[in-house]
Design a protein around this nucleic acid. Sequence first.
DNA 1: CTGTTAGCGCTTTCAT
DNA 2: ATGAAAGCGCTAACAG
Lengths: 356, 356
Amino acid sequence: MHRKIRIVDIAKMAGVSKGTVDRVLHNRGSVSDAARIAIEKVLEQVNYKPNIHVSAISLKRRYKIIVTTPEFSPGAYWESIHNGIRHALEEYENVKVDYQVFTYNQYDVYSCRETFEKIAGIEMDALIIGPTFNEETVNLCKKLDDRDIPYIFVDSTIEDTSPLAFFSADHYVCGFMIAKLITSLIPAHTNIAIFQAVRTGDRSANTTILRKKGFTDYLEKNRCSNLILSIPFSVTEPEDNEMYLSHLFHSQKDIPAIVVLNSRGNYIANYLANNHIEGVKMICMDLTTANIEALKKGQIEYLIGQEPEYQGFYAMKTMLEYLIFKKPVERQNYVQLDILTRENIDFYKSFNNIMY
Amino acid sequence: MHRKIRIVDIAKMAGVSKGTVDRVLHNRGSVSDAARIAIEKVLEQVNYKPNIHVSAISLKRRYKIIVTTPEFSPGAYWESIHNGIRHALEEYENVKVDYQVFTYNQYDVYSCRETFEKIAGIEMDALIIGPTFNEETVNLCKKLDDRDIPYIFVDSTIEDTSPLAFFSADHYVCGFMIAKLITSLIPAHTNIAIFQAVRTGDRSANTTILRKKGFTDYLEKNRCSNLILSIPFSVTEPEDNEMYLSHLFHSQKDIPAIVVLNSRGNYIANYLANNHIEGVKMICMDLTTANIEALKKGQIEYLIGQEPEYQGFYAMKTMLEYLIFKKPVERQNYVQLDILTRENIDFYKSFNNIMY
DNA sequence: CTGTTAGCGCTTTCAT
DNA sequence: ATGAAAGCGCTAACAG
């Protein structure tokens, strides 16, 4: 193994100056065909890897990157994704990027439509999308494709689009695993109540649909005889929930186990606590501050984490490295499904807690 | 927030040249008290953070770092730790470090003693230690302390030493959690067999002792009535194990659940498979290749992971950043306890599988 | 003990 | 279209 190859080395081999090599490497034009071909030939032979440290300090260009996700409040799932994104920008503090965040109401398709239309008109180098509505996302992506603007999905991916990459859990497997966990905790014939968020003007979120499919498939495959009670759950009109919940617990002789397929498990946990309903086994999604609290109190048995900080971090990092170094990108990126209990939750690393 | 502060800025403020500031920052001596004090005063006021990219490309010094751990074979626990270490070195490819690995037999105290004595005589800048024997490690560390050589522990930490840092799971909590998981899988009065490795010339490994304590404490606290069968397990003399195992399964009416507190769970799983013993619930430690295989086959119910790549990676990274940038170090670093099932194992990220 | 300076490899600007 | 050269901030060698 000899010394690392540099731009000057390539320049010498191709009989040009390093300026020209740089222009070819970055597709910056103003290069004669002869020179370009000579350089490309050399590049095929040598395995040139730019020194990213040097690149980092010499970069002068600014990049404009837009991020769009559902709205979020402190401690919520989507906030973690944004934390991850910010940490990636901190790691590349030397790179000048203007980034702008557009959020929409994930329970209201009209809000999403409006936001995405605004975004479509903006000048930008790249986009990171947290999608929840299928059709709206497909429309946006079509426009981006036309303009050759690269985009990366976080949280989930959408069919009929061509993202540079996506960072997401496998939601089907997630539901499958939840089914296994909950059935291991309860007697064979216990009913299981599943909570799903309802939304304005659209079906359930794509993630929830996939999780539910995985869940029911597990039960079917394993010939589980548990009765499934599907309970709607309104984030926008919380007063409706009281009704559903009270109906649920009064119509049933035996207390059912509970699975919450979105990150609002703590709502249900609180209802149970306030109404002194005990002995319910709960499994919920996502390590929101409120869910973690409920887990520690023993109200929730298992929380399933899907590495939101990691998703955000790598979405932004991947995008930057693609823009700056044209680094090749892995398209499919499935994140871990972490199983958290009150025992191991304290060691779980979010970015708050030192990282990467 | 103004422009980032550089060495020249500090030099100007302190009324000296940047060479002198650099000498202070790196403790390289040849600085008058007056200059040093002036610079230190400025450093207190401004929050100087060196540009690591620039540092990385200008570094010329070589570092000699020694790593000592138990021996390991492909796919084993300790190999993952070494993988993490190597990845840290790759991240800092520009830094010239000579690193040398010394392994010892973790089941033989004499081997450890010999290795550590050899290491103690070597010239080096820093040491990373995977300890398993208490007394021997304490002895080694005393000598290192005398010579002002910094050391970091991985896998576990040892009392009465003063490491720069350690990266380890909380083994007590680990045992506690395993107890919770296994009892959730089995009827209330099922016996539980616990396997521990036996060693030559010493008690059990410190990690195993802690895990077992956590395990029994959980059962006690929760008034579990399961009978615990402690089974010795020999790595050096595998033929003994057959005997223990056959005795175990013939002396018991009901098939016990099984917990393996070291990373050799797959041995037991294979014994069960070979002898057509079915329906045993097993929980084992560590994501070795062999254990993962057994998990996927359904022979093992849960595997507990303790992020060995992460431990190795951060041990080396922390050491390098301490040596090069005098970056302040967090001493206690507890890693995650990951719960893996055959459902989520495929998404588990080791370094093989893209990382950091 | 201290200031000055070459050099790291890449990006970008400026003549030509 | 192309080469030359400045500049990024830090490290380490060197001269004084």
